[in-house]
């Protein structure tokens, strides 16, 4: 699948296109197919996102997994600070990145 990501303009937070709005959780990302460029242009023009780009990802029983490690780290947070990730209570969360 192809998913769309970027950063929230004001907070800088990593966000994922979830169909009607942006989500902090990659699990909610939807397949944008060949619509990536048009959604990105529209959302960027509306200042709902900054520097959007599309990436390859896989959907499996554990949810949506970006193909590249860089985007998996963006999705979770720094692997060296589990307390600052989106899953601070899950010590195994970092394994998802590798």
């Amino acid at each position: 699948m192809i998913i769309l990501t970027g950063n929230d303009l004001k907070s800088g937070a990593v966000v994922w296109w979830a169909g009607v709005d942006w989500s902090l959780h990659v699990a909610e990302a939807v397949d944008v197919g060949d619509q990536a460029a048009s959604i990105a242009a529209r959302e960027e023009a509306a200042r709902r996102v900054n520097a959007p780009y599309s990436i390859d990802a896989l959907r499996d029983e554990n949810g949506v997994r970006p193909a590249h490690i860089k985007d998996r780290i963006r999705a979770l947070g720094p692997t060296v600070r589990p307390d600052l990730t989106l899953k601070p209570a899950d010590p195994e969360a970092g394994n998802w990145v590798i």
């Binding site: 800088g12 937070a13 900054n50 963006r74």
Partner: peptide
């Protein structure tokens, strides 16, 4: 923003 040291990095500014 770069002239003022503000980058957009992996997780935030």
């Amino acid at each position: 923003r770069l002239m003022n040291g503000l980058y957009l990095q992996l997780h935030a500014y």
